[in-house]
């Protein structure tokens, strides 16, 4: 390791930390000043997590090789009955099997 910290990385992390803190305190701050949130705004806000996170999943699947696609499909099937950690374990086993047994 050449250095413990790099200036630009530390700046990036701290900016991310400030942005995160604003989201954590923002709702409290808003609700103390506002009586109600317009229903359509609330519906849009309510969709935020699924909308944002899906954009990280879908391209990973469609640009991934067969090893990644099989692993993600296996994890999706696992999710019908199992929680996050078993999903990760099954996906990991699938990708290792594809890479080392089938050489994809």
């Amino acid at each position: 390791m050449d250095a413990f910290f790099h200036g630009d990385m530390v700046a990036l992390i701290l900016a991310g930390a400030v942005a995160t803190f604003l989201t954590r305190i923002g709702g409290y701050w808003l609700v103390m000043r506002m009586k109600t949130i317009p229903p359509r705004l609330e519906a849009a806000l309510n969709a935020v997590p699924a909308a944002v996170l899906t954009t990280l999943v879908a391209p990973a699947f469609f640009t991934g090789g067969p090893d990644v696609q099989v692993a993600m499909a296996a994890a999706l099937i696992a999710s019908l009955r199992l929680s996050v950690l078993p999903m990760l374990a099954i996906g990991w086993c699938a990708v290792m099997l594809m890479r080392y047994a089938f050489g994809t």
């Binding site: 991310g16 942005a19 995160t20 989201t23 305190i25 409290y28 609700v31 949130i37 997590p49 944002v52």
Partner: peptide, 24 residues
């Protein structure tokens, strides 16, 4: 670009705004 990364962190954490409002 760094500002896009910060914005993405903000976007993923946006749900906390709803949490801190509901917890008030």
């Amino acid at each position: 670009a760094p500002w896009v990364i910060v914005l993405s962190i903000f976007a993923v954490n946006f749900r906390h705004i709803l949490y801190s409002a509901a917890m008030a």
